[in-house]
Design a binder for these strands. Structure first.
Length: 432
RNA sequence: UCCUCGGUAGCUCAAUUGGCAGAGCGCGCGGCUGUUAACCGUGAUGUUCUAGGUUCGAGUCCUAGCCGAGGAGCCA
C-alpha cells in the first residue's frame, strides 16, 4: 500500500505513488476520462482517471462517486500546468469509503439563510477554509505577541457571580440553586491578576445577551484582554499599535495564499504599522462636524456611521481617546487635567470596521470608585474584592480588550462577523 | 425593542390586471481523452411559510402569526 500523504505536502511526492484519504468535492465526467476534485482538509487537488489506465471496476467506482463521497485514492502526483494548483494525481486505484447522499451545497450560489442552516457542511468550502485558517493564525499571533512581550497568561472565570460592568445583559445560568452569569469580560479579574503578576492577559470566549442584530455582533465571541500594573493611557496606545501591527504583518506574511483565495486587497493592510494616529474624542467630534454630521453633540456616543466617517480620514487604525467620563465604564480613570473626560481609548479599524479595541487607564482611587459604584447602582458587596485592590498596594494600571471576530472580519474584509467563527451564536440562531 | 425588505422545486430565482406552477443549476439516463461553476441530448421533481378571510377563481388582495435578511440602539 502506498504511503498516506496530505494534499498540502503533495509537491514533495511528485513521481512517487501515494494514497490520498479524503472526500470528493466535485467531479467532471468526460466519457473515457474523469476529473475528480479531491479535498482532505489540508487542500484541494485534481485527480484524473483514464479508462485505459485503470481496472474496469476502478473506473466504474469513480463514476459512482457523488459530491462529498469519502474515498481513498492511490496514484502518482505530477506537475500539470492545466490543473488548478499546478499539480494533479494520476489515479491508479480508488476505494470508496462511503457514497454520500444528495449533498445540499452545490458549486452554485446559495443564500445566507441556507448556508447558515448548513454551517456544519459549509465549513468544507474553500472560502471558509481560508477564513478559518486566517483566524487560527491570528489567534496564534495574539498568543505569541503577549507571550514574547512579558505578559503571563492568567485565565479568568467564565462563570461569574455578578456583572462585570453592570451595563450589558448577561446570560444567566443556575449554579446549584444560585444565579451565575456567563462572563462578558475578564477585566476585573485581570486587574487583580496584574497586581499579582505585573503583566497578564486572558483569552477566551465572552458572552453578551444583548439583542444586537448587526453585522458586527455575536452573542458568543472571543476576546483577548491584557492588563498591566503601572501602565498609563499612553502606554496602552503604544502597546496596542505594536500588537495590532504585529497581527496584520504576520497574516500578510504567513497567510498570503488564503488572503488571495478570498480576494483580499492587501495594499491597505501593508500600511498597518506604528505609529497609529491618536486623536481625542473632542477632535473626533470636530471631524464629524466637518464631514456630514454638523448636528453631532459633544457627549453623545458614536454610532457605526460616525465611526466609519472618523476612520475614513486615516489610512491606518486610529485611536480615539479621552471620551466623556459619563458614557464610559465606572472603573475608568478621569483625566486629572479635565475630569469631564476619562483616560480611555478605542481603536477604530480602517475600511469601516469600527471598534476592534476598547480600553484605558483604570482608576486607582478608592473613594472615586466607591462613588462610581453607587452612581451606577451596582451592588457594592459584589465589588468588595475589587475594591480591595485599591486598599492593598493600589497602582496606576491599564489594559484593553481586542475582539477576535471583528479583527478577523477586518483582516479578511468580510461584510459580516458570522463567517469568522465556525459556529456563530447570534440573536435567534443557535443551530447547528 | 424599533424601522425596512423578504419567504414559490434540493438551491438561486421568475410568474403581466386576480385567470393552466415556470427557468437555470443540482439530480437520473445517454454521449464526449483535458475539464476548471465543462458542454450536448433527455427525464423526473411543488403543502407557493402557517392559519383564517374576500372572490366564480388567490403565488398574487386583506387580517393575524411564524421564520429569515439588512439597518438602528448597545457594544468588542
Amino acid at each position: 500500500m502506498a504511503d498516506h500523504v496530505y494534499i498540502q505536502d503533495i509537491a514533495s511526492h511528485v513521481g512517487k505513488e501515494v494514497a490520498l484519504k479524503g472526500w470528493l468535492a466535485d467531479r467532471t465526467d468526460k466519457g473515457k476520462l474523469q476529473f475528480l476534485k479531491i479535498r482532505d482538509g489540508t487542500g484541494f487537488i485534481q485527480a484524473v482517471v483514464f479508462q485505459k489506465d485503470v481496472a474496469p471496476e476502478t473506473f466504474d467506482a469513480a463514476r459512482k462517486l457523488t459530491q462529498e463521497s469519502s474515498l481513498v485514492v492511490t496514484g502518482i502526483p505530477r506537475a500539470e500546468a492545466r490543473a488548478p494548483g499546478g499539480f494533479e494525481l494520476a489515479v491508479k486505484d480508488l476505494r470508496i469509503v462511503q457514497i454520500a447522499d444528495d449533498y445540499p451545497i452545490t458549486p452554485k450560489e446559495h443564500g445566507v439563510e441556507f448556508l447558515m442552516a448548513n454551517r456544519h457542511l459549509w465549513l468544507r468550502s474553500p472560502r471558509q477554509h481560508a477564513i478559518l485558517r486566517i483566524r487560527a493564525r491570528i489567534v496564534k499571533a495574539i498568543r505569541d505577541w503577549f507571550d514574547d512581550n512579558g505578559f503571563l497568561l492568567v485565565d479568568t472565570p467564565i462563570l461569574t457571580p455578578s456583572a462585570c460592568e453592570g451595563t450589558t445583559t448577561l446570560f444567566a445560568t443556575d449554579y446549584f440553586g444560585v444565579p451565575a452569569y456567563l462572563a462578558q469580560s475578564g477585566q476585573l479579574y485581570n486587574e487583580a491578576n496584574a497586581a499579582a503578576f505585573g503583566k497578564v492577559y486572558c483569552f477566551g470566549p465572552t458572552f453578551r445577551a444583548e439583542k444586537s442584530k448587526t453585522r458586527r455582533h455575536l452573542t458568543e465571541f472571543w476576546m483577548v484582554e491584557p492588563e498591566w500594573a503601572y501602565g498609563t493611557l499612553d502606554d496602552y496606545m503604544r502597546v496596542g499599535e505594536e500588537f495590532v501591527s504585529y497581527i496584520a504583518q504576520t497574516i500578510l506574511k504567513e497567510r498570503a495564499p488564503e488572503l488571495k483565495a478570498i480576494e483580499r486587497d492587501v495594499s491597505k493592510l501593508r500600511n498597518v504599522a506604528p505609529p497609529f494616529p491618536k486623536i481625542s474624542y473632542t477632535d473626533a467630534v470636530e471631524i464629524l462636524h466637518q464631514h456630514g454630521f454638523p448636528e453631532f453633540q459633544w457627549g453623545e456616543d458614536f454610532g457605526a456611521p460616525h465611526e466609519t466617517t472618523i476612520s475614513e480620514q486615516f489610512d491606518k487604525p486610529v485611536f480615539v481617546h479621552r471620551y466623556p467620563t459619563e458614557m464610559k465604564a465606572f472603573y475608568m480613570a478621569p483625566d486629572p487635567n479635565d475630569p469631564k473626560v476619562c483616560l480611555g481609548a478605542d481603536l477604530l479599524a480602517p475600511e469601516g470596521y469600527g471598534e476592534i479595541i476598547g480600553g484605558g487607564e483604570r482608576s486607582a482611587d478608592l473613594a472615586h470608585l466607591e462613588r462610581q459604584i453607587a452612581k451606577h447602582n451596582l451592588p457594592r458587596e459584589a465589588y468588595e474584592w475589587y475594591l480591595d485592590l485599591r486598599k492593598y498596594g493600589a497602582v496606576p494600571h491599564c489594559g484593553f480588550g481586542l475582539g477576535v471576530e471583528r479583527t478577523v472580519a477586518w483582516i479578511c474584509k468580510l461584510d459580516h462577523v458570522r463567517e469568522t467563527v465556525p459556529y456563530p451564536r447570534m440573536l435567534e440562531r443557535i443551530y447547528p
